[in-house]
């Protein structure tokens, strides 16, 4: 097992290296003149050249990359043109909000998607199956921002149950930046309740498509299990039906579902900016989008790198879990 984990971990190093080179190169090739944007229309040629020199934009690309990576490892990701601060600081402040949102959305997706998928498979072609599948299909088809706005209208404006924007006024002392976790660690229950209330709608809005996908995949994986010899064998031993479904079939089905969970993590990161925009969630996805609009190279590179690393790490975790759930994986690699 240890060997398997180490091997998988080593696998992501070249991935990350390639990722950083690719992103860096792309950002430097992107059209548009960020210096002009930054200095305004009145800037003189000297000012522009001085700024370019200062930011190292005249060095050859490999040198720029080397300097960038050297800085990044020391916590210096370059100045952000939006905030005039080190990009690392901006990311450090905004990443936990996005991360918290995504984790909760993922938890919701699994908690709802897997049981619904199981029910749908067990009750195949019955009304339970049809209704869950219709709901799932709508979940995939409906635009995220529309779902987000509808949730706001229904739960915030009509019923005044939940807040519309932000992460809440009452914030716990920052430890990890994940407010739910921080408020629990510091036993600040007011902050915890505020944080829960604020995260419910955005995380639901974010989770819907993933929930639907996990549900559909769990359903088909469960149905696939039905024709397996070992399931017929389990029945022939006189094992209870519930045990066959929730233990013998689900463990196999869930192992296959795990792969999509790793990939969904990327989709969640991608969708997060829409949800963050609608709910005024001060997250990194919004920061990244702003970066694109302002041609803020350093911010773009920084955010994309963090997303890439997060994605790679999420998939590493999924891979390892997969190996734990299904021993065949270890032998294949």
């Amino acid at each position: 097992m240890k060997e398997f984990i180490i091997k998988r971990t080593l696998h992501i190093i070249p991935v990350l290296l390639g990722l950083s080179i690719l992103i860096f190169a792309l950002s430097r090739i992107m059209p548009g003149d960020s210096i002009r944007l930054k200095l305004g229309p009145e800037a003189t040629q000297q000012q522009i050249e001085a700024m370019e020199e200062e930011m190292g934009l005249n060095d050859p690309l490999p040198v720029q990359y080397w300097n960038y990576m050297k800085g990044a490892f020391q916590g210096d990701m370059g100045m952000s043109l939006q905030s005039n601060r080190n990009v690392a600081i901006d990311i450090f402040e905004t990443f936990p909000a996005t991360f918290e949102l995504i984790i909760i959305a993922m938890a919701i997706s699994i908690a709802i998607g897997v049981p619904l998928g199981v029910i749908s498979a067990v009750r195949k072609d019955k009304w339970e199956d049809h209704s869950t599948r219709i709901v799932a299909l709508s979940g995939i088809a409906l635009p995220k921002f529309w779902v987000a706005i509808m949730l706001q209208i229904v739960f915030a404006y009509w019923f005044s149950l939940l807040p519309v924007v932000g992460r809440g006024e009452i914030a716990p002392t920052t430890i990890t930046g994940l407010r739910l976790l921080d408020s629990l660690i510091t036993l600040n229950f007011d902050a915890f309740i505020t944080s829960v209330k604020h995260i419910i709608l955005p995380s639901i809005a974010l989770s819907i498509a993933t929930t639907a996908q996990i549900m559909r995949l769990t359903r088909s994986n469960m149905l696939n299990q039905l024709n397996k010899d070992y399931i017929l064998a389990a029945r022939s031993y006189g094992l209870p039906k519930g045990m066959i479904v929730y233990k013998y079939m689900l463990k196999n089905a869930f192992a296959s579902t795990l792969t999509i969970i790793g990939l969904s993590f990327g989709a969640l990161l991608g969708n997060a900016f829409l949800v963050e925009a609608v709910f005024g969630w001060p997250g990194m996805a919004q920061y990244g989008v702003q970066g694109v609009i302002y041609k803020d190279y350093n911010a773009i590179v920084g955010v994309t790198l963090v997303i890439g690393v997060a994605f790679a790490v999420a998939n590493l975790i999924v891979d390892v879990l997969y190996g734990i759930l299904d021993p065949r994986i270890k032998y294949d690699s």
Binding site: K251, N252, D326, P327, R328
Partner: peptide, 18 residues
């Protein structure tokens, strides 16, 4: 499993891999 039980044909597929 108790009154009547059965041995399946294919040892490669009749055991749950996980």
């Amino acid at each position: 499993g108790k009154g009547i039980s059965m041995i399946f044909q294919d040892p490669m597929t009749a055991l749950n891999p996980v």
